[in-house]
């Protein structure tokens, strides 16, 4: 597991980031409860039990963080979640590429999308250096993946122009 390293500033911890997941969990639990209001008791009991404990734990955490903020030993800035800042654009771009990968694979098919994603993502992360290497790795892996997943394992991955061409040729 990745370690959560100690905060760099020993005086004031930024705990806002620690609240992101709990807030999500809280909202989700409320939504879940909303969806089971009108269902048979048997379908409620287990989730109500777990959900109530979760909300109780979340309240404990809120109190803990609240106390630290009040005592001045912590603030509510995002802290490690937003750090290191220099990587935020790269990470968002990688996220966008990943989203694009999933979105386009339905039309372009497995091989072309993997190739495009791998080369673009590698170029993004390397800052545009070693283009040749990025394209060759992407090409080899896309083809290897095609042979392994689609030809050998017969995965019903969306077929695009490349897969159709191959099927037609062979």
């Amino acid at each position: 597991m990745t370690d959560h390293e100690e905060q760099e500033n020993p005086e004031r911890k930024s705990l806002g980031g620690d609240l992101v997941l709990p807030i999500g969990a809280f909202l989700f639990t409320l939504y879940y409860f909303y969806t089971i209001i009108d269902v048979p008791r048997i379908a409620q009991v287990s989730a109500f039990f777990v959900g109530t404990i979760l909300i109780f734990l979340l309240i404990l955490l809120a109190v803990r963080i609240g106390r630290e903020v009040k005592a001045g030993t912590a603030d509510l800035r995002l802290g490690r979640l937003g750090e290191p800042r220099s990587f935020i654009p790269k990470r968002l771009a990688l996220f966008a590429l990943t989203l694009g990968f999933i979105f386009f694979v339905e039309w372009l098919g497995f091989t072309l999308t993997v190739f495009a994603f791998l080369s673009l993502a590698m170029l993004l992360l390397s800052g545009g250096k070693k283009k040749g290497l990025a394209f060759s790795i992407a090409g080899i892996l896309a083809l290897g993946g095609y042979l392994l997943f689609i030809v050998a394992f017969n995965t019903r991955f969306p077929a695009g122009p490349f897969e159709q061409l191959m099927e037609w040729l062979f």
């Binding site: 077929a159 695009g160 159709q164 061409l165 099927e167 037609w168």
Partner: peptide
């Protein structure tokens, strides 16, 4: 969808 495109397209027309 596109799955069947090449099935129907005869080779000569493709070329």
């Amino acid at each position: 969808m596109l799955d069947d495109y090449f099935d129907e397209l005869d080779r000569r027309r493709f070329l």
